[in-house]
Nucleic acid binder design. Structure first.
Length: 324
DNA sequence: AACTGTCGCAACCGCAGCCCG
DNA sequence: CCGGGCTGCGGTTGCGACAGT
């Protein structure tokens, strides 16, 4: 595998490493440790450049390398970290013991990225991609009918869109984005069996989905009217309060929300997003316990993965600085 | 069986940033 | 401050494996 070996100007070998070369590098580093990659190949008796030696060691020969397929938890972690860090593969790898930046990068490009695209999620922004839904069908949608405060949000947005009709017509991309965000709640429920169908609490999901849409709508309004007071017309209710009151989720602190192994201090205004993230995390853990054991067949695991739709909140982190 | 297209991944390339004289 | 050397990172390449026809 890899490129055809070829010698460069300095007569150094390139291309795939042979087992003999690997052994030489391993033996040398075991005895002397690594460091000064420039002089290492010469000292180790290798016809390679230091860069190539370093890459081989870091990505393949290191004893703590974890080989094999990424676990579901690792996959989730990669997506979450990518939301925060972007293509900072080395930073992501630092939080995944035994995995290299190269491996994570390859896995992202060959698996996760494609899956997100299939789900209609932009792998770069982690937001729903623009679609071609008609605004009228969205505004007439019944998605908000059972939720009074969301209905008022809808009315506010309708008013807003009316006021901004001209600019939206001028900028069709914004119009598409608006329709996309309105439709995302419906799509979440329709296309997200992972999240919705396996839950025992529909109200909980409804609350979560509404929050996702509200957050995105709020962001959209800021995009549409970044310098206008009209943006203030969009007054989204505090779902966190509503949620805690109705569902007794007292274990979610408004000051510190646990995310995986991190305790993340967050600002009051954005904690609701973390609460939703936490809900998803707990639900995932619950579902994880219900999944087949890891030694079940690869095909089964693959089938499970291929049917997974990642919750939107998983792809929508806030308080990046605090998390890092 | 032969051909073609696609996928996965190891390895390379170029650049940016850091360090040191 | 400046320039050269070194390291590390992210993007890209290209081959082998595999699936589809």
């Amino acid at each position: 595998m890899g490129r055809i070996p070829c010698s460069d100007k300095n007569g150094l070998k390139k291309g795939p490493w042979t087992p003999e070369e690997d052994q030489k590098l391993i033996d040398y580093i075991k005895e002397h440790g690594y460091g000064n990659w420039r002089t290492l190949p010469k000292n180790a008796g290798l016809q390679r450049c230091g860069k190539s030696c370093r890459l081989r060691w870091i990505n393949y020969l290191r004893p703590d390398i974890k080989r094999g397929r990424f676990s579901f938890e690792e996959e989730e972690t990669i997506i979450q970290l990518h939301t925060i860090l972007g293509n900072k593969w080395s930073a992501i790898a630092a939080r995944l013991p035994g995995r290299t930046d190269n491996e994570i990068k390859n896995y992202w490009n060959t698996h996760i990225r494609k899956r997100l695209l299939r789900m209609g999620i932009d792998p770069v922004t982690h937001s729903p991609r623009l679609d071609l839904l008609d605004i009228s069908s969205i505004l007439n949608s019944s998605m908000f009918q059972n939720n009074s405060h969301l209905l008022s949000s809808q009315m506010n947005l309708s008013r807003l869109l009316g006021m901004q009709q001209q600019s939206l017509l001028i900028n069709p991309e914004l119009l598409k984005l608006a329709t996309s965000l309105f439709s995302s709640n419906h799509q979440l429920q329709k296309n997200n069996p992972y999240l919705i169908q396996q839950s025992t609490n529909f109200q909980e999901n409804q609350c979560f989905n509404n929050q996702v849409v509200q957050n995105q709508m709020a962001a959209l309004v800021q995009d549409i009217l970044p310098f206008s007071d009209d943006a203030q017309l969009m007054q989204f209710p505090n779902v966190e309060e509503d949620f805690q009151a109705n569902n007794n989720y007292a274990n979610f602190s408004t000051q510190n929300c646990q995310m995986n192994d991190y305790y993340v201090p967050v600002q009051q205004g954005s904690c609701d997003q973390f609460i939703m993230d936490n809900m998803i995390h707990q639900r995932q853990q619950q579902q994880q316990r219900q999944r087949p054991p890891p030694n079940s067949t690869t095909n089964n695991n693959e089938d499970v993965r291929e049917n997974i739709n990642y919750p939107s909140s998983m792809l929508n982190f806030k308080n990046v600085d605090e998390f890092i």
